[in-house]
């Protein structure tokens, strides 16, 4: 994978002001996504994966949230701080997002077709009459049977998997260059998960899109991603290409997540292993490494200052740890 990155996130900081104080949900996160590439983001619940995705989309709820620092460039253009009207022109058309919550992501009082046609008219400049067959075609493409009937149904008449497919179809209809898929399958049952994911990957290749895939499922990362970042408490713990990440995980947190040495490419799915201890409260973070409390390699230095990612821009595997494996 080479070439100019499509998306470059540099030292992104996202903060939320809450009643207890300012929460830094994303803290100096940097990564890039190249055209047609899939970047995986993994990490425990609350580590800032969704917030990162929302920041790219310019959809951080404000107030209470804001992008406090850092830059997000898409095709060389700075997105952080872009006025809402200009950001709106980028959403959907350049970057589309598939959300974590399929049950509530669609508007309950409009039919699926209505919502899709709305998007198609906006992005492809079709008339209502032209948009309808296009919507049916897209629904069929994402694997919805009897799409010509389903199109007139309301979201509550569809299963979670169907709804997620509808959102995916909506995302595809804009023909974006980058798709942010935020745990697109987590809310679905296991069989549906596999089908929906397969569908996404197939379509990503067909439509020549880059993708950021947020997931809990390391098996999925191993199978579908070119590179991945492992996040912990708003920070990147490890950022690596898939081969080295699974062959030689370096951060103790990654090692913990993998549980044991994983077998890449055997198609075996693995969920996040349980690591003893709890994630620190974002309001009371230690001055040193945030994982130190749960780490078996902990030494005095770990509690003094936050470790930064080692290595250079183009090393295949970078880790933020003083004593990596």
């Amino acid at each position: 994978m080479s070439g100019e990155p499509l998306l470059r996130v540099t030292d992104l900081v996202v903060e939320f002001s809450t009643e207890q104080g300012v929460v830094r949900a994303v803290d100096r996160v940097s990564f890039e996504v190249r055209p047609n590439e899939t970047l995986g983001i993994v990490g425990e619940s609350g580590c800032g994966k969704t917030v990162t995705g929302l920041a790219i989309m310019g959809l951080i709820p404000s107030p209470p949230g804001r992008i406090a620092a850092g830059s997000i460039t898409f095709q060389g253009r700075e997105l952080a701080g872009l006025p809402e009207s200009e950001m709106r022109a980028i959403r959907g058309r350049d970057i589309a997002m598939v959300f974590q919550e399929p049950m509530t992501a669609l508007n309950p009082v409009f039919t699926v077709g209505n919502q899709m046609i709305d998007v198609l008219r906006r992005y492809r400049g079709l008339t209502r009459r032209q948009a309808r067959p296009a919507a049916i075609e897209l629904l069929a493409k994402v694997g919805i049977p009897a799409a010509d009937q389903r199109i007139d149904e309301y979201p509550h008449q569809l299963s979670g998997g169907m709804r997620q497919r509808v959102v995916i179809a909506m995302a595809l209809s804009c023909d974006p260059k980058l798709i942010v898929a935020d745990e697109p399958t987590t809310a679905l049952d296991v069989t549906t998960q596999a089908q929906v994911l397969e569908q996404i990957v197939k379509l990503q290749q067909e439509f020549q899109m880059a993708m950021i895939l947020v997931t809990h499922d390391l098996g999925v990362v191993a199978e579908t991603c070119h590179r991945a970042i492992v996040m912990y408490c708003g920070r990147i713990a490890e950022k690596a290409e898939i081969e080295p990440l699974f062959a030689h995980p370096r951060h103790p947190y990654t090692v913990g997540l993998l549980g044991s040495i994983p077998r890449v490419g055997e198609g075996e799915k693995q969920d996040l292993a349980v690591i003893p201890g709890i994630v620190p409260d974002l309001l009371h973070l230690p001055p040193g490494c945030r994982f130190a409390d749960r780490c078996s390699s902990r030494q005095a230095r770990c509690d003094e200052a936050l470790p930064e990612l080692d290595g250079g821009e183009d090393s295949r595997s970078r880790v933020a740890c003083y004593f990596p494996y």
């Binding site: 989309m57 959809l59 709106r88 022109a89 959403r91 959907g92 058309r93 589309a96 997002m97 959300f99 509530t104 992501a105 669609l106 508007n107 309950p108 709305d118 998007v119 906006r122 992005y123 959102v167 909506m170 804009c174």
Partner: peptide, 9 residues
């Protein structure tokens, strides 16, 4: 669903 609508411009 409002967030979805905004995400689709």
């Amino acid at each position: 669903h409002v967030r979805t609508a905004r995400a689709f411009g």
